[in-house]
Protein backbone atom coordinates (compact mmCIF):
# COMPACT_ATOMS: atom_id res chain seq x y z
CA UNK A 1 0.00 0.00 0.00
CA UNK A 2 1.19 3.51 -0.68
CA UNK A 3 -0.08 6.92 0.32
CA UNK A 4 -1.25 7.79 -3.21
CA UNK A 5 -4.86 8.36 -4.14
CA UNK A 6 -6.33 5.98 -6.65
CA UNK A 7 -5.86 7.40 -10.13
CA UNK A 8 -8.90 7.17 -12.37
CA UNK A 9 -7.23 4.53 -14.48
CA UNK A 10 -5.90 2.53 -11.52
CA UNK A 11 -6.31 -1.18 -11.88
CA UNK A 12 -9.07 -2.30 -9.51
CA UNK A 13 -7.76 -5.84 -9.72
CA UNK A 14 -4.42 -4.77 -8.35
CA UNK A 15 -6.11 -2.73 -5.63
CA UNK A 16 -8.18 -5.72 -4.54
CA UNK A 17 -5.08 -7.90 -4.59
CA UNK A 18 -3.22 -5.35 -2.40
CA UNK A 19 -6.12 -5.26 0.06
CA UNK A 20 -6.21 -9.06 0.23
CA UNK A 21 -2.45 -9.15 0.86
CA UNK A 22 -2.85 -6.55 3.61
CA UNK A 23 -5.67 -8.52 5.26
CA UNK A 24 -3.57 -11.68 5.05
CA UNK A 25 -0.64 -9.91 6.73
CA UNK A 26 -2.90 -8.78 9.59
CA UNK A 27 -4.14 -12.35 10.03
CA UNK A 28 -0.55 -13.62 10.17
CA UNK A 29 0.25 -11.03 12.84
CA UNK A 30 -2.75 -12.13 14.90
CA UNK A 31 -1.86 -15.82 14.82
CA UNK A 32 -0.57 -17.53 17.95
CA UNK A 33 -1.28 -21.09 16.82
CA UNK A 34 1.75 -22.44 18.64
CA UNK A 35 0.49 -21.12 21.99
CA UNK A 36 -2.81 -22.99 21.59
CA UNK A 37 -0.96 -26.21 20.73
CA UNK A 38 1.51 -25.75 23.58
CA UNK A 39 -1.23 -25.20 26.18
CA UNK A 40 -3.17 -28.24 24.89
CA UNK A 41 0.00 -30.32 24.96
CA UNK A 42 0.66 -29.26 28.58
CA UNK A 43 -2.95 -30.11 29.54
CA UNK A 44 -2.55 -33.54 27.91
CA UNK A 45 0.71 -34.29 29.73
CA UNK A 46 -0.76 -33.11 33.06
CA UNK A 47 -3.70 -35.50 32.58
CA UNK A 48 -1.46 -38.59 32.47
CA UNK A 49 -0.63 -38.90 36.22
CA UNK A 50 -4.23 -37.99 37.12
CA UNK A 51 -5.49 -40.78 34.85
CA UNK A 52 -2.86 -43.21 36.19
CA UNK A 53 -3.56 -42.66 39.89
CA UNK A 54 -7.26 -41.89 39.54
CA UNK A 55 -8.05 -45.11 37.65
CA UNK A 56 -10.00 -47.83 39.47
CA UNK A 57 -8.83 -51.27 38.35
CA UNK A 58 -10.47 -54.48 39.57
CA UNK A 59 -8.89 -57.67 38.31
CA UNK A 60 -10.63 -61.04 38.76
CA UNK A 61 -8.88 -64.37 39.44
CA UNK A 62 -9.75 -65.48 35.88
CA UNK A 63 -7.46 -62.73 34.57
CA UNK A 64 -10.21 -60.40 33.37
CA UNK A 65 -10.03 -56.79 34.59
CA UNK A 66 -12.53 -53.95 34.86
CA UNK A 67 -11.39 -50.36 34.98
CA UNK A 68 -12.96 -46.93 35.46
CA UNK A 69 -11.04 -43.81 34.44
CA UNK A 70 -12.53 -41.58 37.13
CA UNK A 71 -9.43 -39.39 37.42
CA UNK A 72 -9.53 -38.50 33.74
CA UNK A 73 -13.24 -37.70 33.86
CA UNK A 74 -12.82 -35.28 36.77
CA UNK A 75 -9.53 -33.81 35.49
CA UNK A 76 -10.78 -32.67 32.10
CA UNK A 77 -13.91 -30.94 33.45
CA UNK A 78 -11.94 -28.06 35.00
CA UNK A 79 -8.83 -28.48 32.81
CA UNK A 80 -10.61 -27.85 29.48
CA UNK A 81 -12.13 -24.42 30.28
CA UNK A 82 -8.92 -23.43 32.09
CA UNK A 83 -6.81 -24.39 29.06
CA UNK A 84 -9.00 -22.40 26.67
CA UNK A 85 -9.09 -19.43 29.05
CA UNK A 86 -5.27 -19.51 29.12
CA UNK A 87 -5.14 -19.67 25.30
CA UNK A 88 -7.53 -16.70 24.99
CA UNK A 89 -5.49 -14.74 27.54
CA UNK A 90 -2.17 -15.30 25.72
CA UNK A 91 -3.72 -14.56 22.31
CA UNK A 92 -5.29 -11.30 23.49
CA UNK A 93 -2.14 -10.19 25.32
CA UNK A 94 0.10 -10.85 22.31
CA UNK A 95 -2.33 -9.20 19.89
CA UNK A 96 -2.58 -6.11 22.11
CA UNK A 97 1.20 -5.88 22.36
CA UNK A 98 1.35 -5.86 18.54
CA UNK A 99 -1.33 -3.16 18.35
CA UNK A 100 -4.12 -5.43 17.19
CA UNK A 101 -7.46 -6.61 18.50
CA UNK A 102 -7.60 -10.33 19.20
CA UNK A 103 -11.29 -11.06 19.14
CA UNK A 104 -10.76 -13.69 16.43
CA UNK A 105 -9.64 -16.17 19.11
CA UNK A 106 -12.74 -15.79 21.27
CA UNK A 107 -15.06 -18.05 19.21
CA UNK A 108 -12.33 -20.71 19.36
CA UNK A 109 -11.91 -20.39 23.13
CA UNK A 110 -15.67 -20.43 23.69
CA UNK A 111 -16.10 -23.51 21.43
CA UNK A 112 -13.26 -25.21 23.31
CA UNK A 113 -14.79 -24.44 26.68
CA UNK A 114 -18.19 -25.70 25.51
CA UNK A 115 -16.64 -29.06 24.53
CA UNK A 116 -15.99 -29.59 28.27
CA UNK A 117 -19.51 -30.95 28.62
CA UNK A 118 -19.30 -33.37 25.66
CA UNK A 119 -17.20 -36.06 27.36
CA UNK A 120 -19.03 -36.12 30.74
CA UNK A 121 -22.37 -35.98 28.89
CA UNK A 122 -21.40 -38.95 26.68
CA UNK A 123 -20.09 -40.85 29.72
CA UNK A 124 -23.35 -40.16 31.59
CA UNK A 125 -25.44 -41.21 28.58
CA UNK A 126 -23.56 -44.52 28.16
CA UNK A 127 -23.64 -45.26 31.91
CA UNK A 128 -27.38 -44.52 32.11
CA UNK A 129 -28.07 -46.63 29.02
CA UNK A 130 -26.22 -49.69 30.31
CA UNK A 131 -27.96 -49.47 33.70
CA UNK A 132 -31.18 -50.59 32.03
CA UNK A 133 -29.81 -52.47 28.99
CA UNK A 134 -27.62 -55.59 28.83
CA UNK A 135 -24.02 -55.19 27.72
CA UNK A 136 -23.93 -56.63 24.16
CA UNK A 137 -22.26 -60.02 23.66
CA UNK A 138 -21.21 -59.23 20.11
CA UNK A 139 -18.25 -56.93 19.39
CA UNK A 140 -19.37 -53.32 18.92
CA UNK A 141 -19.21 -51.90 15.38
CA UNK A 142 -16.05 -49.95 14.42
CA UNK A 143 -17.89 -46.63 14.08
CA UNK A 144 -18.84 -46.89 17.76
CA UNK A 145 -15.13 -46.89 18.73
CA UNK A 146 -14.46 -43.91 16.46
CA UNK A 147 -17.41 -42.02 17.99
CA UNK A 148 -16.19 -42.93 21.48
CA UNK A 149 -12.73 -41.53 20.65
CA UNK A 150 -14.26 -38.41 19.08
CA UNK A 151 -16.14 -37.40 22.24
CA UNK A 152 -13.03 -37.94 24.40
CA UNK A 153 -10.98 -34.83 25.27
CA UNK A 154 -8.33 -35.53 22.61
CA UNK A 155 -10.96 -35.86 19.88
CA UNK A 156 -12.56 -32.61 21.03
CA UNK A 157 -9.15 -30.89 20.91
CA UNK A 158 -9.04 -31.82 17.21
CA UNK A 159 -12.56 -30.56 16.56
CA UNK A 160 -11.83 -27.18 18.16
CA UNK A 161 -8.53 -26.95 16.27
CA UNK A 162 -10.61 -27.20 13.08
CA UNK A 163 -12.54 -24.15 14.31
CA UNK A 164 -9.25 -22.29 14.92
CA UNK A 165 -7.96 -23.24 11.46
CA UNK A 166 -11.13 -21.81 9.92
CA UNK A 167 -11.04 -18.62 12.03
CA UNK A 168 -7.38 -18.01 11.19
CA UNK A 169 -7.77 -19.16 7.56
CA UNK A 170 -4.77 -21.32 8.44
CA UNK A 171 -4.21 -24.06 5.85
CA UNK A 172 -1.15 -25.48 7.65
CA UNK A 173 -3.17 -25.86 10.87
CA UNK A 174 -6.03 -27.47 8.91
CA UNK A 175 -3.66 -30.07 7.44
CA UNK A 176 -2.08 -30.73 10.83
CA UNK A 177 -5.52 -31.08 12.46
CA UNK A 178 -6.74 -33.57 9.85
CA UNK A 179 -3.63 -35.69 10.50
CA UNK A 180 -4.10 -35.29 14.25
CA UNK A 181 -7.75 -36.36 14.07
CA UNK A 182 -6.81 -39.41 11.97
CA UNK A 183 -4.26 -40.30 14.66
CA UNK A 184 -6.60 -39.98 17.67
CA UNK A 185 -9.68 -41.41 15.98
CA UNK A 186 -8.31 -44.18 13.78
CA UNK A 187 -4.82 -45.10 14.94
CA UNK A 188 -4.32 -44.67 18.69
CA UNK A 189 -6.50 -46.68 21.09
CA UNK A 190 -7.37 -43.60 23.16
CA UNK A 191 -10.38 -45.32 24.75
CA UNK A 192 -9.04 -48.78 25.59
CA UNK A 193 -5.28 -48.26 25.64
CA UNK A 194 -2.60 -50.62 24.41
CA UNK A 195 -3.22 -54.07 25.86
CA UNK A 196 -1.13 -56.90 27.26
CA UNK A 197 1.38 -58.48 26.94
CA UNK A 198 3.46 -55.30 26.45
CA UNK A 199 1.52 -52.99 28.76
CA UNK A 200 -0.51 -53.18 31.96
CA UNK A 201 -3.84 -51.33 32.03
CA UNK A 202 -2.45 -48.06 33.43
CA UNK A 203 0.62 -47.96 31.17
CA UNK A 204 -1.52 -49.01 28.20
CA UNK A 205 -3.71 -45.94 28.78
CA UNK A 206 -0.76 -43.61 29.38
CA UNK A 207 1.15 -44.41 26.17
CA UNK A 208 -1.45 -43.03 23.69
CA UNK A 209 -1.72 -39.87 25.82
CA UNK A 210 2.08 -39.44 25.77
CA UNK A 211 2.02 -39.81 21.97
CA UNK A 212 -0.75 -37.16 21.67
CA UNK A 213 1.13 -34.82 24.02
CA UNK A 214 4.34 -35.22 22.02
CA UNK A 215 2.52 -34.66 18.69
CA UNK A 216 0.94 -31.44 20.02
CA UNK A 217 4.26 -30.29 21.47
CA UNK A 218 6.20 -30.93 18.26
CA UNK A 219 3.48 -29.12 16.27
CA UNK A 220 3.67 -26.17 18.70
CA UNK A 221 7.42 -25.93 18.16
CA UNK A 222 6.99 -26.20 14.40
CA UNK A 223 4.31 -23.49 14.25
CA UNK A 224 6.41 -21.24 16.51
CA UNK A 225 9.38 -21.63 14.20
CA UNK A 226 7.24 -20.88 11.16
CA UNK A 227 5.74 -17.80 12.87
CA UNK A 228 9.21 -16.47 13.66
CA UNK A 229 10.30 -16.97 10.05
CA UNK A 230 7.29 -14.95 8.83
CA UNK A 231 8.23 -11.94 11.02
Amino acid sequence: MTANSIPAADDPRRLLSDLRALAHRVRLHQRMTWVALLVLSAATFAAIPVDWFGMEVNCQPDGGCQFARNGMLWYWIPATPLAYAAIAFFYLRAARARGLGGRRVLPYAITGAVTTIVFPAAWLAVTTYFESHPIPDQPLPYWWFVLDRLVMPWGMIGVTLLVLAWLERNVALLLFTLGYLALVLLVLPMNFGFGPPHFGIRAGMAVPQIIVGVVLLVAALGFRRAARRHR
Partner: peptide
Protein backbone atom coordinates in the same frame (compact mmCIF):
# COMPACT_ATOMS: atom_id res chain seq x y z
CA UNK B 1 -8.97 6.07 -1.75
CA UNK B 2 -6.06 3.66 -1.45
CA UNK B 3 -4.94 4.58 2.07
CA UNK B 4 -8.44 4.87 3.50
CA UNK B 5 -9.34 1.48 1.99
CA UNK B 6 -6.20 0.11 3.62
CA UNK B 7 -7.23 1.54 7.00
CA UNK B 8 -10.71 0.05 6.70
CA UNK B 9 -9.30 -3.33 5.59
CA UNK B 10 -6.84 -3.59 8.47
CA UNK B 11 -9.44 -2.44 11.00
CA UNK B 12 -11.99 -4.87 9.59
CA UNK B 13 -9.54 -7.76 9.88
CA UNK B 14 -8.23 -6.85 13.35
CA UNK B 15 -11.54 -5.49 14.73
CA UNK B 16 -9.45 -2.99 16.71
CA UNK B 17 -6.08 -1.60 15.72
CA UNK B 18 -3.49 0.71 17.22
CA UNK B 19 -2.32 3.88 15.45
CA UNK B 20 1.33 2.72 15.39
CA UNK B 21 0.44 -0.59 13.75
CA UNK B 22 -1.53 1.15 11.00
CA UNK B 23 1.30 3.62 10.42
CA UNK B 24 3.85 0.81 10.01
CA UNK B 25 1.69 -1.40 7.80
Amino acid sequence: QRVRLGILTVTHEARRVEFGYLRTQ
